[in-house]
Design a protein around this nucleic acid. Structure first.
Lengths: 325, 325
DNA sequence: GCTATTGGTGTTAGCGCTAACTATGCATAG
DNA sequence: CTATGCATAGTTAGCGCTAACACCAATAGC
């Protein structure tokens, strides 16, 4: 017990005793066992972080932000890649609960994730949602302003003369997808351009999805003059498809998307994007979570919406102010 | 105890009893406590993974590969970003030991990391080194063939007519840096080009380091015709510096580096690189570690060297076969 | 001189689980 | 009819720690 007091820096230990304990620690190479401490104190100093994919240039910085904030708060992070798979996500959640993480940071796969999250919230388990919110789910969350971001991106395209703008987005089961579609529609409406359902392509928001949706878009009779993809993975597939069809950006097709990519931004700054403060998002999410874990959060759920940043580069200029086709 | 048997799927439980236990589990919403199991069985089903930075396009895939392999083996991953900081790395190692991870995957900061690793190995603690090896350290490791990779990259430059090739690398305290320098020297020697110390710039292998070193290189009287940077972060800084000096790649300066970047590769395929199988590296590292944890590894340390892949794109062509300057 | 008070130290119990053992009932063998 | 084996169920102890309390000497207060 006295040793425990020394290790945890509690007072109530004589100077001489403390010295002797420290000596013994050094001599034996003793390392405290956090597992045992966790069992005893019911505090594991560990949180879980579930993202679709660390390699995604949006989630990478989110993870870094969260991990750094966690370290500063004395916490460790169990990282899980859900791969956008609901089953895997649920498995991870159960597993992390079993590991007795003190809280969970989740970038949910889709609206359906709420079935996995719901049972946690009933038990008042600390959870913060990242990037996407969940319908009918009363839970702390932190997201970027997708409606405004999408609107400004499309407004930008319209201001350059684009009127036929294709939007690649997901299956209407994520808050980000819905909000970005809404922003797209708002921008069109404000410019008096009729919204056309057949210009919106539903796909998985990854590279292959972007590729397929773009192929479909290019197979239509009327071609768009620009494509707005819902995120940074879809845009990669879109670019592939465009290139295969011999279309050059921006001469033949404008291209914009959500999320900036650091390497691309410096090495080849041509893609116009709506940049999201990913690292801030991760670090603020962690802070919200720690407040909740510490019980300093109050019963009401908090919702933070971060601003996005339009970065105009070269991927959507239209020469002579008129669409190419 | 009977409940424990049911939960762990051990035999020796009657069908009726099993049913009753399962019923109770469902009714109570019981979730087994892995912390307690870990304390009792001395197995936490957790490994630690320390990388300099998840956001780095090389380490991102490494993390994903390791995490996926870990999940398949029933393990969870505690992720730590050492930020290339020895102090932080050591802190993380101690902390992970304290968390009783069963093994450690480490991409060491530098040769000095061995002081932190050494004490683990004395205790036969399962460790696998990633990406970089450590001198005088007998430990499982998995790296890419840096010597050959660098040699082929420089050979490629030479074959295009480059003879003044600047190399941006680190402070000679990492195995990757030393080996890539060696490859650089080998390629020069094979082509009969004298090695010149003043064409090698030592720097921190990040963006700012690449920037500064390139500025220095461009301040010399004799300009190189090509730059070979040691990794994908340095190349970003190099590109920034080149652009600020009004130099265009590849017209004014060839540019090659280690590591491919997925987004760049598709969206703007111009950078010639030596691609490393990062995800494979992560997943193999995890497999080595699990073999060691399971005691199937034998006393001798294993060393795996993965092949790299030259991807020739457009960043170093020389028109008319003669250096521009 | 006797009881409070204080600071240092030790004891007990329990966190939730599992290894190892014991106990029980029942079938089969000798 | 006992001995033996076997499947099932339960008991005990302990993993390494900490909360809570008990203990003891030294000092303070009246």
């Amino acid at each position: 017990m006295t040793a425990s007091r020394v290790i945890n820096g509690r007072h109530g230990v004589g100077a001489e005793t403390q010295r002797r304990v420290e000596e013994a620690i050094a001599e034996l190479g003793y390392v405290p066992n956090r597992i045992a401490r966790g069992l005893s104190s019911q505090k594991t100093q560990t949180i879980g972080l579930i993202v679709p994919d660390v390699v995604n240039p949006f989630f990478g910085p989110v993870v870094r932000g969260a991990e750094t904030a966690a370290r500063r708060a004395g916490y460790r992070v169990l990282l899980c890649n859900s791969e956008g798979d609901l089953r895997l996500e649920r498995e991870y959640i159960n597993d992390l609960i079993s590991h007795r993480v003190e809280g969970l940071l989740v970038a949910p796969v889709s609206d359906h994730s709420r079935h996995s999250i719901f049972s946690l919230l009933r038990g008042e388990f600390p959870v913060v949602l990242l990037d996407r919110t969940l319908p009918e789910t009363d839970c702390d969350s932190i997201v970027c302003d997708s409606v405004s971001g999408a609107r400004r991106l499309v407004e930008h395209l319209i201001s350059l003369g684009h009127r036929h703008i294709t939007h690649l987005t997901d299956a209407d089961d994520t808050s980000t997808g819905r909000e970005r579609l809404k922003g797209y529609q708002e921008a069109l409406a404000a410019a008096g351009i009729p919204y056309r359902e057949e210009f919106v392509f539903r796909t998985t928001v990854d590279q292959i999805g972007g590729y397929r949706a773009t192929q479909q878009a290019l197979a239509l009779d009327v071609l768009p003059t620009a494509i707005f993809t819902v995120n940074n993975m879809t845009v990669v597939g879109a670019m592939q498809a465009l290139r295969e069809n011999g279309l050059v950006v921006p001469q033949d097709m404008g291209l914009v998307c959500f999320d900036d990519v650091e390497h691309l931004a410096v090495l080849s700054p041509f893609l116009t994007v709506m940049s999201q403060p990913a690292e801030t998002l991760g670090s603020l999410a962690a802070q919200l979570l720690f407040e909740r874990i510490a019980g300093k959060a109050g019963p009401r759920s908090r919702r933070i919406v971060l601003k996005t940043d339009l970065i105009v580069r070269l991927s959507c200029c239209i020469k002579s102010g008129v669409p190419v086709r």
